[in-house]
Design a protein around this nucleic acid. Structure first.
Length: 845
RNA sequence: GCCCGGGUGGCGGAAUGGUAUACGCGCACGACUUAAAAUUGUGUGGAGCAAUCCAUGUGGGUUCGAGUCCCACCCCGGGCACCA
């Protein structure tokens, strides 16, 4: 018998599938849609390793299953081609990024095709293609027009190695997420997207999503909503009253009577403004300025190190006035307060905040308790740490005796009435620093005019194409390399026709991935036949038809980057009427990492990378697919194991051998053999595999197929129908092998029906992947007899066989009549007999 | 510190509160072979001759019955973190 020749089979069917276009997205009216999407890759680096396709194989299995279930399936793939990884690769290898990226794309595509993935390649997109980024720019202009893209000069995080500004999301602690370099604060001109305007919606609408809990939690944390109050403290000096206010944000307004000093972040504008205005009143001005200089030099790590002593310096001569009791509080500048959060200034309540407590101890500041833990008993005045719980207010004027919760409400009302503050909500989320001083990104489509300021490029002039350039390496000056191309930079103002310059910053790598799932929908063949500025009818019709993405699969590392950004853009597009849904991705699953055999991440650095190419060559794409789905739970990280993989190969070889033996048998020997046990198992397996695929539990689905195969191998005779059902169940996992055997079986059964009129029809190619998914028969699944265990006092002692229709009493009688059971219960009193239907009997003695 | 996950054989793992260890890998022994590989059959949590006992990170609890539910703790992975 010929061996299972995976190379021949896989090549053959990949060719036929491509030629017959079975994976092209169909739009059959009677069928419901299903949009399943992978997070598209950056085509950088050295091609795929075996870890990358885990998610792709899963969506492939799922999309094949859905297609067989009768859905119009949209399952596209594309390339996130702009951005730092691609550009750094290009610089390292001294090739133009465009050439490098295209080369990498070709490699990726070849590798993905070799796995036999069912993508509709007619919808392939590339974020670095002008006809694509035209619409990325168009969306940016809509942000700009709505005032949600704005210019800012605040200090931002700057990576000295990547030579560009970064967003908060691009950091890993205080390191550049990309290259691991310590980032610096650098004041520079930048474009910012006002994602904070969507903070509340991004938070609230999480409940519309069917996403894994950890991702939801991470997003909640990232947005970091806290409800509190703003309080304006007056500023008073020795010489005179000043009109200045210090605004603080607090979540513990109830503790305000315990406020004994205020703290302002050193980088806060307020500090410089106070120093400027009150220079002659601050007696220790020089020391204050020195402290500010020093804290600027400190890295964020040094500043935010919890173990470190808190430092600060008093603004001597300046006092803040607590509006609730008119008491004076000292004012400190200290770097344990962050300029980027809240108002950049806090009221310090050492008795009820651990940080303030430590600071107060160090600088000998008064500690005043105003929350009583055991009201109405008197408070114990000696604290060894801050009392941070809620309680009842004491020493708090008219608010004394209220609970913390009541006090927060009433005090906020009082603030509002007196117009010195009130309730407010702050978010940890910061606006998205959206400009990069790099070459390989979408040019920001704006023009700077001396007269008119920043002006949008006219939509009809989009795309603003990235110009060819000699040196695409970053300049490090804070300008992108585009700034050197005077010919490209100097333009006329679209508004006044006067001399103007193009914006030379480019967009961050996340821009293109913010709307790519829309691009697949509106793209047909090699062009965007229907252009994006929606509102055009055909377009919104399509978006309405396919949105939202029903199922999105990708890495969990995108939780607070891509997945926040894309939701933000989608919500904005929803608000301006482009998309019909509030959320882009309904259901989400995250694949676990595949680690190398040494339990480290696969990396060229460790020399432990395994390429899918060699696996496919030596074992076959189907083996790779089955192994990756079988190796463990989909969402769990797992080590690659070459030893374990052979099990998947053996399984497929046994399938090949078994079905081939049926095919070779004379037709009359293989049909019509009935075996109720096998049929029952077959239907049970249909149920199990169907449910497991639905739940992304591929490992147990494959194990069920193995159990079925084990049983089928034991049969002396097998029906073609059984084999066909088995192949259908296997086909999403091992599409090539299933197709090969399916077509051979079909030819075999057509030989059986030779002469019948149906035979002619069979000549038309129909792939197993276009067949319908098997249904199970509930009646067939039911067992007629069960073996159930008998427990005595919760320990299994015997087993009896019962029939399904036995009454409870009969089962109990049978259990008690069992010889082994008799032995165990003899001489003991039977207190209770519990029977769980068709499961277990427990006798309590 | 806070918020998520997770701890089950030699290994990857399975198990709607109901026979813990399915399925696969590995291992042992047998068959085939001159031999080996491949294939194939049987066995395989631990202790014990056995009856039986002990095992799902640890300790308690609920229950006729707990890997699964509750409480406390330990360890591993991930996220956030001087966020006021």
């Amino acid at each position: 018998m010929a061996d299972y020749n995976h190379r021949k089979i896989e090549k053959k069917w990949q060719k036929i599938w491509e030629k017959s276009g079975i994976y092209k997205t169909k739009e059959i009216k009677s069928k419901p849609k299903y949009y399943i999407l992978d997070m598209f890759p950056y085509p950088s680096g050295e091609g795929l390793h075996v870890g990358h396709p885990r998610g792709y194989i899963a969506t492939d299995v799922y999309s094949r299953y859905r297609r067989m279930k009768g859905f119009n399936v949209l399952h596209p793939m594309g390339w996130d081609a702009f951005g730092l990884p691609a550009e750094n690769y290009a610089i390292k290898h001294k090739i133009h990024p465009k050439i490098a990226v295209n080369k990498n794309i070709a490699t990726y595509k070849r590798q993905l095709k070799a796995i036999g993935l069912d993508y509709d390649w007619s919808r392939e997109i590339n974020t670095a293609a002008p006809n694509y980024y035209k619409w990325t720019q168009w969306i940016f202009l809509q942000f700009f027009k709505k005032g949600l893209a704005f210019q800012s000069f605040e200090p931002i995080n700057w990576c000295p190695s990547c030579k560009t500004g970064l967003a908060l999301e691009d950091l890993d602690g205080n390191l550049c997420e990309r290259c691991g370099t310590l980032v610096e604060k650098k004041p520079m001109r930048q474009w910012v997207l006002k994602i904070t305007a969507y903070a509340e919606k991004l938070l609230k609408d999480l409940k519309l999503l069917d996403w894994p809990n950890p991702i939801i939690e991470q997003q909640k944390n990232w947005i970091g909503k806290s409800e509190g109050a703003i309080v304006k403290f007056g500023v008073r000096c020795q010489m005179s009253d000043v009109k200045n206010n210090i605004e603080v944000f607090t979540t513990r307004l109830d503790t305000i009577f315990g406020c004994t000093y205020l703290v302002i972040a050193p980088e806060h504008k307020l500090v410089s403004s106070i120093i400027r205005q009150l220079a002659d009143q601050v007696s220790n001005l020089k020391e204050v300025e020195k402290y500010i200089q020093e804290s600027k030099k400190k890295s964020e790590i040094q500043r935010t190190d919890l173990a470190k002593d808190k430092t600060g310096i008093e603004l001597k001569g300046v006092k803040a006035v607590n509006p609730f009791n008119n008491e004076e509080a000292s004012v400190f500048v200290a770097d344990y307060v962050l300029g980027s959060y809240g108002t950049g200034a806090v009221m310090a309540v050492p008795a009820h905040d651990q940080r303030d407590f430590e600071f107060a101890k160090k600088y000998n500041l008064p500690i005043k308790m105003v929350i009583c833990p055991n009201y109405p008993k008197p408070i114990c005045p000696v604290l060894d740490k801050a009392y941070i719980e809620d309680g009842h207010l004491v020493n708090s004027g008219q608010f004394t005796s209220l609970t913390s919760q009541e006090a927060r409400e009433k005090m906020a009302d009082w603030l509002k009435k007196n117009k010195i503050g009130g309730k407010t909500i702050k978010y940890r989320l910061q606006d998205w620093v959206f400009s990069r001083q790099r070459y390989w990104g979408e040019p920001i489509p704006l023009i700077h005019c001396e007269e008119c300021g920043a002006v949008a490029v006219s939509e009809k002039d989009l795309p603003v194409k990235l110009p060819p350039i000699k040196s695409y390496e970053p300049t490090g000056t804070g300008e992108s390399p585009l700034a050197n191309i005077t010919k490209w930079v100097n333009v006329k103002c679209p508004k006044c026709n006067g001399p103007a310059k193009r914006e030379t910053n480019t967009m961050p790598q996340w821009a293109g991935s913010c709307w790519y799932y829309l691009a697949y929908i509106v793209k047909e063949n090699s062009k965007f036949k229907i252009p994006m500025p929606t509102g055009r009818q055909e377009n919104s019709k399509l978006l309405k038809k396919w949105l939202p993405v029903d199922f999105y699969v990708g890495g969990a590392e995108h939780a607070t980057r891509h997945l926040i950004y894309a939701r933000f853009w989608h919500k904005f597009l929803y608000d301006i009427g482009v998309v019909p849904t509030k959320e882009p991705f309904h259901k989400l699953a995250n694949q676990g990492l595949i680690l190398a055999e040494d339990a480290r991440k696969m990396s060229k650095r460790w020399g432990n990378v395994i390429s899918p190419d060699e696996i496919i060559k030596n074992y076959g794409a189907d083996t790779l697919r089955v192994y990756e789905m079988f190796m463990g739970p989909f969402e769990q990280a797992i080590n690659w194991s070459a030893d374990s993989m052979v099990g998947s190969r053996r399984f497929l070889e046994r399938v090949y051998k078994l079905v081939s033996s049926i095919i070779r048998q004379p037709a009359d020997q293989v049909s019509g053999v009935k075996n109720s046990n096998l049929e029952r198992l077959l239907h049970q397996t249909i149920k199990k595999v169907t449910e497991d695929i639905e739940n992304f539990k591929f490992n147990t689905a494959i194990s069920a197929l193995m159990i079925l195969l084990n049983e089928m191998e034991k049969q002396s005779q097998l029906s073609i129908v059984s084999c066909q059902l088995f192949l259908k169940l296997l086909s999403p996992f091992a599409p090539h092998l299933s197709e090969e055997l399916w077509q051979q079986l079909k030819a075999q059964s057509s030989r059986q029906r030779r002469g019948s009129p149906k035979a002619a029809k069979l000549k038309v190619f129909k792939s197993i992947h276009e067949e319908s998914w098997p249904k199970y028969d509930k009646k067939m699944i039911k067992e007629e007899t069960y073996k159930i265990p008998i427990q005595i006092n919760g320990k299994v002692r015997a087993e009896i066989e019962i029939e399904t229709d036995w009454k409870d009493e009969k089962v109990k009688e049978a259990a008690l009549a069992n010889e082994t059971v008799k032995k165990w219960i003899s001489g003991k009193e039977i207190k209770k007999v519990i029977y769980a239907k068709n499961k277990i009997v427990n006798i309590v003695v």
